[in-house]
Design a protein around this nucleic acid. Structure first.
Length: 471
RNA sequence: GGCGACAUAGCCAAGUGGUAAGGCAGAGGACUGCAAAUCCUUUACCCCCGGUUCGAAUCCGGGUGUCGCCUCCA
């Protein structure tokens, strides 16, 4: 059994065969730090974080690099608008990125280098291209000669002629061919600039990623990933530059995440429908957002709407309910052979197998979630009938969900804790009222607690309490 | 115009040759003082037309529709 993944380059699912197993080198294109990240960005980062975790889970040692693009046209424009220096703008939004992604439970890459801290290697890489005759100076700029790269268009699967049909030259650009792209931009007044053999200036966007990927991970890396919109021109150009400079394969597998639309529409500033993570976290908890995103395949387009997230939340809460109930049942459990433990064990291993099978197949998170739900039914049946509870069964069930959740982070795994004195007293009072069939008192206590964010449930085995998920 | 992806129940969504996972919503039932939670039952001519095959949602061809890329964009 091996992990299979869809490679944009070959348009096929391929078995993952890292260059130097068990090591996997993995580069994800990070944000341009000119604004707060939105839910579409979040989808990308959540997905590749989950993929990274899963590869680790499967025994690989993943080295993940994700860059910050902290110098480009957008940065310069935005800095001017905000009245900040470009580095100050970068600091502000890198901090915002780190806060937002942490709240979404996205784990940071092993390294998150900034382009502006890598000017030297970038210059060296451009120098190599120039030496090989693949780059030329024009005006104060340095351009990559796209047509000199035989396989230009291989990733986006377009011929150079087809690409040419749509290409256009910005005013002020001094390209020989519309397909050429800038490696180094000559200094313009008021813009940040670094010294280089071609005069003062700044790096182009594409070369940053090539340089940082190769600098940290080597000239041939295993996985390179990003949003689908990066396929052309960004990733296409990265291949051209990197392979042009080294003569080697740059990345062996290319992964691209699908778009996230808002209410069937593309997210864009002009439509005014950009949902920032920051805003969204006021209305939704991170687990629900993650669950929602993982409920579709990562390459499919995903539509975002409050109704769809609400539906996802209800489903997620069923899993949470099970975990909470397992946690609550655990303290009162013992080594009592109550239910055929072997039957539960085999259901768990069936679920685990389904989970792994789905994830091995190009990270089918939706299929994997199905396995979690199927086992949840078994777990609930056990909780309903299995009293007194066998500690071993509870722990096995909980263990499986903990294992899966270490990858998905869609559940709150820790127990709610024991009730405080106040709560204990109220529950006892209500129990007494119920024994006396004083339903109005019993209901009043239940409603009071509900208002405080605590839900009471009367089960055949006693009263359970939990925090309201919407509180 | 060029390249490509997708089309599965009211909604979301798996499933790439052997008579359709799962979730949400709905209906009925069990349990409950009432709730809540949970469980059980129930809902699919797999866009259309051809073809290959003993057998196709799955492969091939042709339609239709939706979306994306070709220009900054996750």
């Amino acid at each position: 059994m091996a992990v299979k993944l869809y490679n944009t380059l070959t348009r096929r699912k391929e078995e993952l065969e890292p260059l130097q197993p068990p090591e996997i080198t993995f580069y994800v294109c990070g944000p341009t730090v000119y604004d707060y990240i939105h839910i579409g960005n979040a989808r990308v980062f959540i997905i590749f974080d989950v993929i990274r975790r899963y590869l680790n889970y499967r025994g690989y040692r993943v080295r993940l690099i994700q860059n910050y693009t902290d110098i480009d046209d957008k940065m310069i424009r935005r800095a001017a608008e905000e009245g900040l220096s470009v580095p100050a703008l970068a600091d502000k939004f890198i901090e915002a990125y780190e806060t937002d992604t942490a709240r979404l439970l996205i784990r940071p890459a092993d390294l998150q280098p900034r382009a502006t801290e890598h000017i030297e290697p970038i210059i060296a890489l451009i120098g190599r291209l120039e030496k090989r005759g693949l780059a030329y100076v024009s005006g104060g700029d340095v351009y990559f000669d796209a047509r000199s790269f035989r396989n230009y268009g291989q990733l986006s699967h377009q011929s150079t002629d087809d690409l040419l049909a749509g290409a256009r030259v910005e005013p002020g650009e001094l390209k020989r061919d519309p397909l050429d792209f800038v490696l180094w931009k000559g200094r313009k007044p008021g813009e940040p600039a670094w010294k280089s053999p071609w005069g003062e200036g700044r790096p182009g966007w594409h070369i940053e990623c090539s340089s940082m990927a190769m600098h940290y991970l080597g000239e041939t890396i295993d996985l390179h990933a990003g949003g689908a919109d990066l396929i052309f021109p960004h990733h296409e150009n990265e291949i051209a530059q990197s392979t042009g400079a080294t003569g080697k394969t740059f990345a062996r597998y290319w992964l691209h995440a699908g778009y996230l639309n808002i209410e069937e529409q593309k997210m864009s500033k002009s439509l005014g429908n950009v949902l920032t993570v920051r805003r969204l976290l006021d209305d939704y908890n991170p687990h629900d957002l993650r669950f929602f995103i993982l409920s579709a395949h990562y390459r499919s387009p995903l539509n975002f709407s409050p109704e769809l997230v609400a539906g996802a939340r209800t489903g997620r809460e069923r899993l949470q309910e099970l975990v909470d109930n397992l946690n609550l049942a655990l303290p009162g459990s013992a080594s009592v052979p109550s239910e055929p433990a072997g039957a539960i064990s085999s259901m768990i291993s069936t679920a685990r197998n389904r989970f792994i099978e789905a994830m091995d197949d190009d990270f089918n998170t939706a299929g994997a979630l199905g396995a979690l739900f199927e086992l949840a039914r078994e777990g609930n049946i056990y909780l309903q009938k299995g009293y007194p509870y066998d500690r071993q069964i509870l722990e096995q069930l909980l263990g499986f969900y903990r294992e899966a959740d270490a990858l998905f982070d869609i559940l709150k795994m820790q127990s709610a804790g024991s009730p405080d004195e106040e709560l204990r007293r109220k529950i006892a009072l209500r129990e007494e009222a119920r024994r006396n069939k004083d339903w109005s008192t019993a209901d009043r206590i239940r409603e009071e607690l509900h208002a405080q964010g605590i839900i009471l449930e009367d089960t055949p085995h006693g009263v359970r309490w939990k925090y309201r998920s919407d509180a």
